[in-house]
Amino acid sequence: MKILNLLVIIVFFFNFNVSNAKDRNLNSKITKNLRCLICQGQSIYDSDTEFANSLKLVVEKKIIEGMSENEIYEFLKTKYGEWILYDPALNQKTYILWLLPLLLFLIGGAIIFKNLKIKKN
């Protein structure tokens, strides 16, 4: 009986997930990447301030109007500045941010491999 229940729940999950509207997923994806200007530590998705609720509606409208994800980011960037995006674009200002960790990774790797003995001795 328990196993049956379990199966029902699993199937339920899978169906639920698949039939979920794509728009809604996109909406929450976008709003998770936006930072709230009212309570500045939270994303629009997590926040329930008036501003955040309205912005969720705006994102929804823009999706229905047919704007793409990037167009919506661009639109909001012109309104509120780059600060509103949680995902900083790779440009002059952010080269160090994006590339320094990778550079450090490469340097670390180089140091390790320099010290490895590849041949069996």
């Binding site: 998770k32 990447n33 994303s43 780059e82 509103i84 949680y86 900083p88 200002k93 990778l102």
Partner: peptide
Amino acid sequence: FLDVLTSQKISVGPPFYHKL
């Protein structure tokens, strides 16, 4: 660092960490 050196304000959030 960016704010102090260039007075530009950006946010670094979950997408950055996830991608890297």
